[in-house]
Simulated scan of single mutants.
Amino acid sequence: MISLTENPPVPLEGREVILVDDGSTTGASMREAVRAVRKLTPTRVTVAAPVGAHETCDALMSVADDVVCVRAPEPFDEVAQ
């Protein structure tokens, strides 16, 4: 196990941050991740996922500076599809 005292968090102030998820169905956890990272004052936040619901990828644009969803199949039922 790694202790935070051994590896302090990387400062994000003034940096570009890319948050990556394995897929996004509702986007709820990613929205919270973006909100948490924004408190650390990065210059930009990009959200990336290989697959996501089209509506979710569009909605994430309201919290992130950029959103990259490689695939947004219709209909989208779950990440595993």
Results as ranks from 00 to 15, higher is better:
F76Q: 06
E32A: 14
V68W: 07
A28W: 09
T41Y: 03
D66Q: 13
M61W: 03
C69F: 10
P42T: 00
A48L: 12
A33C: 14
R71K: 14
S29T: 15
A64S: 10
D77M: 03
P75S: 12
R31M: 02
E78F: 15
C57M: 15
A36H: 08
T56H: 12
R44I: 04
E32R: 13
S29P: 04
H54T: 11
A49F: 06
T56Y: 08
V63S: 00
R35M: 10
S29E: 08
D77F: 11
A72G: 06
V68E: 13
R71G: 03
V37T: 14
D65Y: 04
A36I: 06
D58E: 15
C69Q: 05
R44M: 11
V51R: 10
D77T: 09
V67Y: 07
M61N: 13
V63W: 00
E78L: 12
A28N: 12
P42H: 03
V47E: 05
A36S: 14
R31N: 02
E32K: 12
R38L: 08
R38C: 02
S29F: 03
V34C: 02
C69L: 09
P73W: 11
A33G: 15
T43V: 07
E74I: 10
R44V: 07
A48S: 10
L40P: 02
P42V: 00
L40R: 09
E55N: 13
E74W: 09
V67D: 02
S29N: 07
